[in-house]
Design a protein around this nucleic acid. Structure first.
Lengths: 143, 143
DNA sequence: GCAAATTAATGATTTATTCAAG
DNA sequence: CTTGAATAAATCATTAATTTGC
């Protein structure tokens, strides 16, 4: 019985080291030729195909971003909760502790495209624009 | 030491999420009244002013286009820019120094200059594509 | 120690976006 | 308005770590 035909690529430690080194050096989305070169080089350390290299960089980049985003998010939350000592009291949640679920129906593409049905929004002031950097600027949805 | 009264707005993760959702929904250059409403809504999640919203959409749209344009530019210049050693962060250092055992020169002058030196179509077609996007080019910044 | 069971990583696919060309 | 090009995000699937009962 032939060994389990491992259905997916499994990088050798050496291959992994090199890929990580490249990533650290700034490689993120290698071009086709770069992928070819990288693949050719890594094939000295074990079986590998171009798509493996392609996927590896895609995944690594994506998960790096993911990790970073989670870290920043947590950091942000910690800062906020720590900077408001008085929020430790539970009874005061009425104020600013947890943003209650405010209504979320907002602007959607449908709203923008069917602009004729907009009763509340101010009429586009059109020419003359930009107001101060203060309250806002006015513009027509051109997109 | 006086606390740094953070002179500029810093979106909370929640605010960012909502802004991005709006952007995805088609909002690009909200009108003054839209900005007012958005600001009011986002203020549930942290300090924010109308100008912050205005600038956010301006910047996000601009950077989105910039990113795309840079990608296209890269694509357009690939054949020529491949001869730019600088564009390959990991070229000789990464390959010629660390990997001692196996031979395989990597990015050599010949490769860089004869960018068209990739005669074979590219990474294994295996039954799916990846590869189609390769011939085009991408690379480098802000990834 | 050692596998079966469970959980965490991560390779591979699919889906949803973006802008701009036609 | 539709489509092309190129991802990046979300998801699926399999492999590696680990936990656990014996």
């Amino acid at each position: 019985m032939p060994q389990a035909p491992s259905t997916r690529w499994c990088p050798t430690p050496k291959q992994l080291m090199i890929l990580e080194e490249m990533y650290r050096s700034g490689v993120r989305t290698p071009t086709a030729s770069q992928i070819q070169q990288i693949t050719a080089y890594l094939s000295h350390y074990g079986r590998i195909e171009g798509k493996n290299v392609f996927y590896w960089f895609q995944n690594h980049k994506a998960r790096d971003r993911q990790k970073l985003r989670r870290r920043l998010s947590r950091h942000h939350h910690l800062l906020h909760s720590c900077s408001h000592p008085h929020s430790l009291h539970f009874s005061e949640e009425t104020f600013h502790s947890p943003p209650p679920p405010p209504p979320l129906p907002f602007y959607t593409r449908s709203y923008l495209t069917s602009s004729t049905g907009s009763p509340s929004p101010l009429p586009p002031p059109s020419h003359f624009v930009i107001v101060s950097r203060e309250d806002a600027a006015k513009r027509q949805p051109e997109d």
